[in-house]
Design a protein around this nucleic acid. Structure first.
Lengths: 335, 335
DNA sequence: TTGTACGCGTTATCAC
DNA sequence: GTGATAACGCGTACAA
């Protein structure tokens, strides 16, 4: 069942059928009705490949993420997909993993599928050295790129970020201003966003005249980022004699580990230990008391990604960079 | 840069270029080398739409899920996408929500994009009445359907499920055999899978000669399925005088709520209250003690979905239904 | 307002 | 082995 069959059964040319199909202007209401009736009767659906061939687009967006199993990124996928779909675009998903070669391959694969644009989720896709981002520059020559939570200045690359630096700085200041002296900082990623968060923590300390102490800053590799692992690690830290009265982390799950440490070692939260998480996820609600957490407005960011992309695709100009401010959601784990 | 350009620069016909491209049969090693060299030099990538038009396939699988924000489904997406990609297929994601009309639309939209097959995640896509599943039957006439965690007997529909019934039955028996008398059952979904779990719980009770008590069975709507909400609900139940010494749930997060209830009301786990969750997710590790949980082997199920789909697509015959057995992972929340 | 004819970039079927 | 050439199904100038 193709456009020729319809044109024949309807007694018109394929051009007319095509016009009806594309809601195009000049078709007499009468023939339009008739053609539509025939199409409905025959259950006709235009061939997407042929259409794509002609239009050079199948209205598809590539979604790249290092790992869709991460609840945070999973949420982002939901938000992005929903918004794109509402605007007539489908999403091709590509979970590349973090290995550089796989990420590059993922980008190329999506390009080879002729997506209209790509959204790159998280700053994992950014390399420290400029030459490492050559693959992004090349991709941007073919389709618009929108980066979520990553900042990269480049032609045809648009960035939507939350101000992680300011967020952790303010969280740190909030802890200090409530009387805390020794804030443990736990983080799980050294990518650009992870570095910003760390820098914000350090800036927060310095803004109150406190030194940056390496013994209060700890990194967790991905496979070590489980609640029990963090709990045990903090237990060992305390056992070694390290003193701390607050924990700030780059991920709620790390802070849940801290809460667990507190319970096991009978330290009361928030009286003896303040805890702040990041992402304001369901995990923040798992603890007793519930965790104060930085809400980085994921849904807002995602919607901004989509509307930016749509603007670019429709030829309108869009902001190269959009920055939102995170919000500290205060709950029972802080004074 | 298309196949004509390459053929011209290489001094061969497009037929030969096409043969080289498809690793196809009889091409002299010499010309093959030459053509490959020209393609590499020109950075030629064949047009996916044109290829799709000819082959009637773009090697794309449609992934349908009611809600990718659900960590469980998010994980499933990761597993499925990874396995399909490893086999040369891309995934078109469609998060439809649970409304019936949207689900039907989602299926139709993927069909209109000419996917090679579809994976439907969760039994949300199954209706109770047979006529409600007409849309699945129709879809199955066009492409193979694989259902994850849903059983539906129909031509060209393949199902991969975990035996939820047996899983909750065994979990229930395990609780009873450890001396528990009054098991609270909390669930969050009334779809086919949710009904199986509930039935398993009931069967477990009856297998030990206990009655099914409606006052011990409670449903949580999606928006009520948060840790604090469950905690508060259990507090109110206890306040009303209901006695229970164990909680079994259809979702880890519900059980986390139960753990929180226990802490707030100073009931010790597992001495005074046993708790079992479902899915064996990260949430099960958030509590102190960690939760015993039913591991329904999601990754195994997903891989089975993919290999089933690949078999069908390659013309081999595949099992109409594949059933796996869940495993009760015992942790500190049970005796 | 409607129809004709060509282009889009491949794959596949023939001949040679 | 290799090369013409016809599909594949649709969009769209251009003509009528």
């Amino acid at each position: 069942m193709n456009i020729y069959d319809i044109s024949e059964k309807a007694g018109v040319s394929i051009a007319t059928v095509s016009r009806v199909l594309n809601g195009s202007s000049r078709v007499s209401p009468k023939t339009r009705e008739h053609v539509l009736a025939v199409m409905a009767e025959q259950g006709y659906v235009p061939n997407a490949f042929a259409r794509g061939l002609g239009l050079k687009s199948m209205k598809t967006i590539g979604l790249l993420c290092p790992n869709a199993g991460d609840p945070y990124l999973a949420l982002a996928i939901t938000y992005l997909e929903r918004a794109f779909r509402a605007n007539g675009y489908d999403c091709l998903l590509s979970c590349t993993g973090k290995a550089r070669s796989d990420r590059v391959k993922g980008v190329e694969l999506l390009l080879s599928k002729l997506v209209d644009g790509m959204v790159l989720m998280g700053s994992t896709f950014l390399e420290a050295n400029e030459s490492g981002n050559k693959y992004l520059q090349n991709a941007a020559k073919r389709v618009p790129l929108v980066m979520l939570n990553a900042a990269y200045a480049c032609e045809n690359v648009y960035c939507v970020v939350c101000d992680d630096y300011r967020a952790t700085m303010e969280a740190t200041q909030s802890l200090l201003d409530s009387g805390r002296k020794n804030i443990l900082y736990l983080y799980h990623s050294r990518n650009a966003s992870g570095q910003k968060k760390l820098a914000g923590y350090q800036a927060g300390l310095q803004s109150r005249g406190l030194p940056i102490r390496d013994d209060l800053i700890h990194f967790f590799a991905e496979d070590k980022m489980s609640v029990p692992a963090v709990r045990d690690f903090l237990l060992s830290l305390a056992h070694q004699g390290l003193t701390f009265d607050a924990v700030l982390s780059s991920e709620d799950i790390l802070s849940v580990g801290a809460a667990k440490y507190a319970r096991v070692s009978r330290r009361s939260v928030p009286e003896s230990l303040s805890i702040i998480g990041y992402n304001n996820s369901s995990f923040a609600l798992c603890c007793e008391p519930e965790l104060t957490s930085v809400d980085n407005k994921l849904e807002v960011l995602c919607n901004a990604c989509v509307s930016t992309m749509l603007s670019v695709l429709s030829g309108k100009d869009a902001p190269q960079k959009t920055v939102y401010h995170a919000e500290l959601v205060k709950r029972g784990s802080t004074l």
